[in-house]
């Protein structure tokens, strides 16, 4: 793999989060259901928090040259592997949004894992794994929400 700096890795992650923020904001513009629109706006705000978090991470890495310790990887429930992809248009439901979010988080998790595996540089590898672990927790968060939702609706 080509040599890549830690700052470039964080830049890459930031672009991903910015894309996600744009994705949710644009979907919110399209959604006709008020409740779905509100949830999409909330998710766009969450992505901004991730961007802020990356900015903080960048400062820490710049200052110490060390990669912070991971809070661990979350085991997925498996929903993201099997629910089909959805396009968020004006008919989007809360369930659709969760599916789309799971797909995005899974994609991010897998790409960071892949780049970690391809990295020769220990610090770059550690940073990719740190990012992957964070995405795994985001993914699990959405899978838990989806599981709660499915459990609630299947109750009768």
């Amino acid at each position: 793999m080509e040599e890549i700096t830690l700052r470039e890795i964080i830049d890459y992650a930031r672009i991903n989060e910015e894309n996600a923020k744009r994705f949710y904001s644009e979907a919110a513009e399209k959604a006709s259901a008020e409740n779905v629109r509100a949830y999409l706006k909330h998710l766009a705000k969450e992505e901004q928090k991730h961007i802020d978090h990356l900015n903080e991470l960048e400062k820490k890495v710049d200052k110490s040259g060390k990669i912070p310790k991971s809070h661990g990887v979350a085991k997925p429930l498996g929903y993201a592997d099997y629910v089909g992809k959805v396009r968020l248009d004006e008919t989007a439901s809360y369930q659709d949004v969760l599916k789309a979010a799971m797909a995005k988080e899974k994609e991010a998790f897998e790409s960071y894992r892949k780049y970690a595996a391809l990295s020769d540089d220990e610090k770059a590898k550690a940073l990719f794994l740190l990012l992957a672990d964070e995405e795994s927790r985001h993914l699990r968060g959405f899978e838990d929400k989806y599981d709660d939702f499915m459990r609630e609706i299947e109750n009768n």
């Binding site: 259901a33 008020e34 409740n35 509100a38 949830y39 439901s93 809360y94 939702f149 609630e152």
Partner: peptide, 9 residues
């Protein structure tokens, strides 16, 4: 118009 909806629809 004016009929409110919850997050779950």
């Amino acid at each position: 118009p004016g009929l409110g909806q919850t997050k779950k629809g």
